[in-house]
Amino acid sequence: MKQISFNQSFIKLFGLIITLFVTISGNSQAYTQQELNDSIAKQPYFSIHKDNYFITGVPTNKTIGRNTADAKYQISFKQILTRSELPWNTYLFLTYTQKAFWNIYEESFPFSDINFNPSIAVGKAFYDKDDKLKGIGTLAFEHESNGRDSIFSRSWNRLSLEYTTNIAKNTIGRFKVWVPFAYKKGNSDLLEYTGLGQINLSHIVKPDKLFFDFRFRKGLNLDFKGSVRTRIYFNPFDNNISNQYLMLEWFVGQAEGLLNYQQSQSMVRIGYVIRTNEFKWLRGK
């Protein structure tokens, strides 16, 4: 099978992004500060953080077989520590995300890599001059590792800053940068593949029915190391009270997992997802 380069794949995906994100407009039904505070007060302390999913698929850049097809799943949750008013109207919370790569088509079904990502973070909402919600910022201390030792150990720590806001009609942008530290043992060149930040765009094609998501990372050097991840969420059910979707994901690039972060991947997977609703307030009332 002919290999698909990271550069070629990115150009194709970027064209799709431009097609989807063409209508710029604000959100006329944005939450006020009091409305947001009232809504947050009614939320459970324990909730979903990132998407929770189980997907399986095949590579597009190598021969398809029992040793190259796999499954990937993710479990992610968030625990609010306090809703009481902290300095600068912030709130404190914990998150935990676990992502696993599972070779379910091989004999004995071995796990090839499991990544653990706990964090403690401070969140703050920002408002415009009319007291309408403009965006949500998060400052977090994150640790990520694969829990292994010896030459297979991979880990890094980072202080990350993320800002989430509406950038177009039905489109939410998440812009994240990080300052890494204590990461060079076992993966000294990791930043050449993960870079110092990422851009994530999520577009509502049809409310509660069809979503499109795009994430881009660029490594530090002037080459094509990095990654592009695209997702399409489709709800085939008439009622979606549980936020359940089918998800089609295409990942192209490096550092999808920590163990073999230098290895180039092009994987197409499909499966079941419980989609996060963490930034629902930015969609307006």
Rank of each mutant, 00 (worst) to 15 (best):
N7A: 13
N7M: 07
Q8T: 11
L13K: 14
L16Y: 11
T19Q: 09
T19F: 12
T23S: 12
T23R: 03
S28C: 08
Q29N: 13
A30M: 06
T32I: 08
N37W: 07
N37A: 10
I40Q: 15
P44H: 01
Y45H: 08
I48T: 14
D51P: 14
I55R: 05
V58C: 02
P59K: 00
P59E: 00
T60K: 01
T60G: 15
N61I: 05
K62S: 15
T63V: 07
I64A: 12
N67Q: 13
T68A: 08
A69N: 12
D70E: 14
D70H: 01
Q74K: 10
I75F: 15
L81G: 04
R83W: 01
S84L: 04
E85N: 09
E85Q: 05
N89Y: 06
Y96W: 03
E106P: 10
E107R: 12
P110I: 05
F111T: 10
D113F: 13
N115R: 04
N117M: 13
P118E: 09
I120L: 15
A121H: 08
K124I: 04
F126Y: 09
Y127S: 11
D130S: 15
D131N: 15
D131L: 06
G135I: 08
I136A: 03
I136S: 04
G137R: 09
G137F: 06
T138K: 13
L139A: 14
H143K: 07
N146T: 01
G147M: 05
R148M: 12
S153N: 14
S153I: 01
S153L: 05
S155C: 03
S160Y: 06
S160L: 07
L161F: 10
E162P: 04
T165H: 12
I167W: 05
A168Q: 02
I172L: 11
I172T: 11
Y183A: 10
L190N: 01
L191K: 01
L191F: 13
E192T: 06
Y193D: 04
G195Q: 02
G195P: 04
Q198W: 12
Q198G: 02
K209P: 00
F211I: 06
F212M: 08
F214Q: 09
R215W: 00
K218A: 14
K218Q: 12
L220Q: 09
L220F: 00
N221C: 03
N221D: 14
L222T: 11
D223T: 04
D223I: 02
V228K: 01
V228F: 07
R231Q: 13
Y233P: 09
I241G: 03
S242K: 10
L246G: 02
E249Q: 14
F251C: 08
V252M: 02
A255L: 07
A255G: 06
E256A: 02
L258V: 00
L258T: 01
Y261Q: 04
Q262D: 08
Q263K: 11
Q263S: 10
Q265E: 15
Q265L: 12
M267R: 09
R269S: 15
I270V: 14
Y272R: 02
T276N: 13
F279Y: 14
W281C: 00
W281D: 04
L282F: 07
R283W: 09
G284C: 11
G284N: 10
